[in-house]
C-alpha cells in the first residue's frame, strides 16, 4: 500500500480564526457604531419626524390607556375642561389655538395633593388637585393649562416619546434590560405617559404659544408670569414635605420669566386686566376631595397608578 498516503493538511484551511477576540472587537465595534449612529440620527430627527406622524396614529398609541380614564361627571373636571375649551376656541369662539387637524383637548382632574400638571399624547392634559389648590385665580390656572395645551399643539409629547424610544433602542444594544426599562418608562408602564420630558426649547415654545392663547381668551396677560412665581412660593411655604413636581418638570428660571415678559411686551399685550376668580363651587368640591382618599389609593385595580407622578424614578 505504499502508493497511498494521507498527507497532513495545513491547519488554517478549515479553521481560519486564529484571533477570535480581535474579530469580536471588530464586529461588535462596527455593530455598536452602526446602532449608535442610527439611534442618534433617529433621536436627533425624532422631533422633526414625529410632527409628520399622523395625529390618528398618536391617538392610537394612547387609546388603550385613555380608555381607563373616561370623561367623568365631576364639577372640577368640567370646570377645567371649560377653561381648556375657552383657550382653544378663544374668547367667545374668536379663534384661540391652532390645534392640529382632528386634535381635541381633554383635561383630566387628578385628585392628588401633588403640585403638577402635564400634557401627554392624544391631546390629554392632566391637572392635579395640589396645583389647583395653590392657584389664586383662574388666570394663573389658565396659563398652566394653556402651556400644557401648547405642548399638545406643537406635538411635543410624540416628539419626546420618539426621542425616548430611540434612546431606549440605542441603549438596548448595550443592555436589553436597561434599554427596555427606558422604553417602558418612556411609554409609561403606568399608563398615562406621565414622564414625557420636554426640552428647554419646547418649554419656551409652549410658554409663548400658551401666553398668546391666554391673551386671546382673557384679553390680557395677567397671571402669565405670576404662574411660576406662585408655584415656587407655594412650594416654599409647604416646605419640603411635598416636592413641587411641576417645578421639576417645568424648571423655572429668571431667564424664562424674563423671556415670557419680553414676549408680552413685544406684542403689546396688556399685562394686567380683570382677574377671574375660581368659582366657589369648585373650591368646595376640591376641599371635599381632599378629605377622601386620593385617586391612586382606592377603587382597586380599576385605577391604574398612572395618575401618580412619584411612582417611577
Amino acid at each position: 500500500m505504499a502508493q497511498f498516503s494521507n498527507p497532513e493538511l495545513p491547519e488554517e484551511i478549515n479553521n481560519s480564526d486564529d484571533k477570535p477576540l480581535r474579530s469580536f472587537f471588530a464586529l461588535a465595534g462596527s455593530a455598536l457604531l452602526i446602532g449608535v449612529v442610527a439611534a442618534a440620527a433617529l433621536a436627533f430627527f425624532a422631533g422633526t419626524v414625529a410632527r409628520y406622524l399622523p395625529y390618528r396614529t398618536e391617538v392610537g398609541l394612547i387609546e388603550r390607556y385613555a380608555e381607563r380614564f373616561p370623561p367623568r361627571d365631576h364639577p372640577v373636571e368640567a370646570y377645567l375642561q371649560g377653561i381648556a375649551d375657552r383657550l382653544v376656541k378663544g374668547k367667545d369662539g374668536a379663534g384661540g389655538m391652532a390645534l392640529p387637524e382632528g386634535m381635541t383637548i381633554r383635561v383630566h382632574y387628578v385628585n392628588e395633593p401633588v403640585i403638577n400638571a402635564f400634557a401627554t399624547l392624544g391631546g390629554h392634559v392632566a391637572v392635579f388637585r395640589g396645583l389647583l389648590e395653590r392657584v389664586p385665580d383662574e388666570n394663573v390656572l389658565a396659563m398652566v393649562i394653556a402651556h400644557e395645551i401648547a405642548h399638545a399643539q406643537h406635538r411635543h409629547p410624540i416628539a419626546s416619546l420618539g426621542r425616548g424610544v430611540a434612546f431606549g433602542a440605542m441603549l438596548s444594544i448595550v443592555s436589553a434590560a436597561a434599554g427596555s426599562s427606558v422604553v417602558e418608562s418612556t411609554l409609561g408602564r403606568s399608563g398615562m405617559l406621565t414622564l414625557l420630558s420636554f426640552s428647554r426649547a419646547q418649554e419656551e415654545e409652549a410658554d409663548e404659544t400658551g401666553v398668546a392663547a391666554l391673551v386671546r381668551a382673557y384679553e390680557h396677560a395677567g397671571g402669565a408670569t405670576e404662574t411660576f412665581k406662585v408655584l415656587q412660593r407655594a412650594a416654599a411655604e409647604r416646605g419640603h414635605s411635598e416636592a413641587p413636581e411641576f417645578l421639576s418638570t417645568h424648571p423655572v428660571t429668571q431667564e424664562r420669566i424674563a423671556r415670557l415678559a419680553a414676549t408680552i411686551d413685544k406684542n403689546g399685550w396688556k399685562t394686567e386686566g380683570t382677574r377671574t376668580p375660581i368659582p366657589e363651587t369648585v373650591r368646595v368640591v376640591m376641599e371635599k376631595d381632599a378629605k377622601e382618599k386620593p385617586d391612586s389609593a382606592n377603587k382597586g385595580g380599576t385605577k391604574p397608578q398612572g395618575r401618580r407622578m412619584k411612582d417611577e424614578g
Binding site: 478549515n14 481560519s16 474579530s23
Partner: peptide
C-alpha cells in the same frame, strides 16, 4: 469563523 474550529 467561530464555528469553523468547532466543526473542524
Amino acid at each position: 469563523r467561530s464555528y469553523e474550529s468547532l466543526i473542524d
